[in-house]
Design a protein around this nucleic acid. Structure first.
Lengths: 199, 199
DNA sequence: ACTCTATCGCGACAGTTGTCGTCTTAGGAG
DNA sequence: CTCCTAAGACGACAACTGTCGCGATAGAGT
């Protein structure tokens, strides 16, 4: 995500590391409400104006944290069945966006307010869903589901209710809820006599 | 939500109407980012301190707008089949939270930041889902689906992906997307040979 | 008509957010 | 080692957010 910037090494990288570390630390301690550029600047030892110049606002900070974190080699699980794979993904969503101090959750909360945060959410989820598509493709290869299904739509249908539940409903979902949402979708596309879903 | 407050009529009600009208107007014009207590106070002719005292923050403002709007006699449609009813609900979600200046959307965006907004989202969606449960109950009565399904879970499974898509994915969903998410769930619980879903 | 009190108007205040221009420094190029 | 430039440091600044105490008033009860 750095591109061919002029001075990738040295001080700049050090400043970025210090700031991002301060963001996650402040986030875990005080949550999204307690996260401010001023606090991050003080904690990281970097000047306020510098943080504003490079990251713009809290949304930019969070987006950069996630961009840095997304630079991993994550790959979806392979349990041999679509249901098991999707349930595993759902549990992972629960683990990552469930906790109040979670970066993903904070970023989603800031998305509507800060354009940079919204772009960060888009990048993160798009990458996530792109990597997860193999789960559905493997199911197609196994003959578990019809080849006409669109992997992305199945993933969103299976995990979307969990995100919605986590972020917008009063009662926090547990592992059983996550599994139930997945099963509701899997039952549809793997139903023996059911008509092949169009999308 | 007024309860047995002491002075429901007269000036207080007038102030509330003026402020809430200013909120929706500012929201439509400048979006959530451009919504501030100061602007609302100026536009409504009500003093800053009064707005802060009664509503606390932007989240309180948005929550009250939605509380006022939820005081209607809305009832879910009855098209004679679960699929048609759910698709209708999905289209309604699309209409109401799709537009950028929508109050529901703004409230959801502010939820993570302001506790009052979060409570407002909870109240609104809970009420909405409670009223919509009849759609599933009618399907059970018709014998369309098994009686063991939990209406709330079906609704969340059918509409959750749409909320998720609307709020967190780059490409805005259209009517076809909304219908597809619904069908994916309906196919599962109405599948002739499929095992009865557990919840 | 009179009283009483919840609510509003008002202005002062402190803290936070975000911008700007200027100066200094780290560190790459020669 | 020296020069040059991108990046950070610094402090001043305006706008917004949220709080407080005090005085004014609408409007309900009698």
């Amino acid at each position: 995500m750095d591109g061919p910037t002029s001075r990738p090494g040295g001080r700049t990288a050090r400043v970025r590391a210090a700031v991002l570390a301060a963001v996650v630390a402040d986030l875990e301690e005080h949550g999204l409400e307690g996260l401010g550029v001023d606090g991050v600047a003080a904690r990281s030892g970097v000047h306020r104006a510098t943080v504003f110049r490079r990251w713009g606002d809290v949304g930019g900070l969070l987006a950069d944290v996630l961009d840095a974190a997304a630079d991993d080699a994550w790959t979806p699980p392979d349990h041999g069945s679509l249901a098991a794979d999707l349930e595993d993904l759902a549990q992972e969503v629960l683990r990552y966006v469930g906790p109040a101090g979670s970066t993903v959750r904070a970023l989603m909360g800031a998305a509507e307010r800060f354009p940079r945060a919204q772009a960060g959410v888009h990048r993160f989820l798009d990458d996530r869903y792109r990597r997860s598509a193999v789960v559905v493709e493997r199911a197609v290869a196994r003959g578990e589901v019809d080849a006409s299904v669109e992997p992305r739509r199945v993933l969103v249908a299976a995990l979307g209710p969990l995100y919605h539940h986590l972020l917008h409903l009063p009662d926090p979902p547990d592992a059983a809820d996550a599994a139930a949402y997945v099963r509701l979708v899997v039952a549809g596309i793997t139903a023996p006599g059911g008509r092949p879903p169009r999308g």
